[in-house]
Design a protein around this nucleic acid. Sequence first.
DNA 1: CGTACCGTTGAGGTGAGTCAAAGTAAGTGG
DNA 2: CCACTTACTTTGACTCACCTCAACGGTACG
Lengths: 227, 227
Amino acid sequence: MMRHIHLGDVDQSAIASLEKKRIARTYSAGDRLFAQDEVPDGMYCLQSGHVLLWHSDRFGHKTSFRMVGPGELIGYRSLLGNDPHSANAEALDACHACFFPRVDVEQFIYCNPSVTRQFFRILARDRGPPDALLLRGQHLSIRIRLIYFLLIMKAHHGRRGTDGTLVYNLPLSRTNIASLIGARPETVTRAIKELKRDGVAIFQNRRVLVPDAKKLLEEVGIDAMPK
Amino acid sequence: MMRHIHLGDVDQSAIASLEKKRIARTYSAGDRLFAQDEVPDGMYCLQSGHVLLWHSDRFGHKTSFRMVGPGELIGYRSLLGNDPHSANAEALDACHACFFPRVDVEQFIYCNPSVTRQFFRILARDRGPPDALLLRGQHLSIRIRLIYFLLIMKAHHGRRGTDGTLVYNLPLSRTNIASLIGARPETVTRAIKELKRDGVAIFQNRRVLVPDAKKLLEEVGIDAMPK
DNA sequence: CGTACCGTTGAGGTGAGTCAAAGTAAGTGG
DNA sequence: CCACTTACTTTGACTCACCTCAACGGTACG
């Protein structure tokens, strides 16, 4: 199955000509699609699998800021900003991705105002900044950050089971989760234990079960996730 | 004196026609250029004064993420993303700003690929996300975050005095600084006191003096700020 | 059957938050 | 010019959520 970049009503011939340029690549867990400080030579559309974007500072602190799933674009910020990659893109499991070379992306973007507009939206709506407020806000306890984490992941990675249970398939280690919400693995373990005790969420292996999604929302005191 | 948006070599007539549409506005301390959740109807170029961008969550926690100085653009993310403003833009002192109505901005952006490219860069290079890692990273002490704060502010708000002293003019309250680096005002006060004791930085009123800029860099263990 | 990696548990320490009170500065109006 | 208000800053004492460190347990894989 081929996944397409979702761009609404756009000149089909432009898309077709971009699709011709795509290069299929496969990765296994641990591989990097690109690494911090590399100069981008194109961008990726993930077909299957999961990719973690993380940044490493000079002290070796690893800060993850986005987990990408099938259908999402990767590497567009650095490409469009014409800057070296500010993050590592690491495959969490077996991945298929389409690579689009820089020149073809640029041709595509500028071929048509409506495509250009779409890319402005993609850039402007990058979830990183607003999500960071929820995932890393100092004034929020680790428990609440975990809840926000689940709420944010719901959109791309949660599936509603037959009995209303929310099921996540997240190929993330405790350490990964910790670095996403700005905590330590031990603390994540403890918070997860409490969520289980309270019947809010059950983390088993790399699966998460949420018996009642309403409880998540109650806990953070809202009726629905913003946007 | 009229400040212009810096866009490199761009069709002068396009700029001229945009400039004709600009609307000069003035604000005094505390005024809002726009408020969270409002629908953007254009964007701003700050001529003089300072503006603080901050976000308020449902619990009333105030998180500031950018202080804007003369010559900088404000409100472009929401405009280009076609979303309601996700932040408040509040004048910290007397401000002059040019407002550019949405239609005119759009015409300008799409009139010319090189302008379009520039705006992609502006969006992609938004300092918010990378700065947030340094200003709000849990693994960094408040002292270090304050140092990063000064290093980040150096670019737009620091001036080198005659004797090599670095001088900042920051119309920010302790509370503002606290909300920028993810701390409490009391903690900021204490950290500032220690920086003074160690001869690293002297905060007096709304001015900051840094006798030796090298000390800032030493403290965070780098030779220069990234980018 | 080891080795290596990840996850869990426990004990102990601490940086920053919280709370409350005192100090300071900047307006405002008589 | 001086009371009075209001808002911001500083200080000190106390508390706590999370980090750190260290040991142990589980599971996968050669």
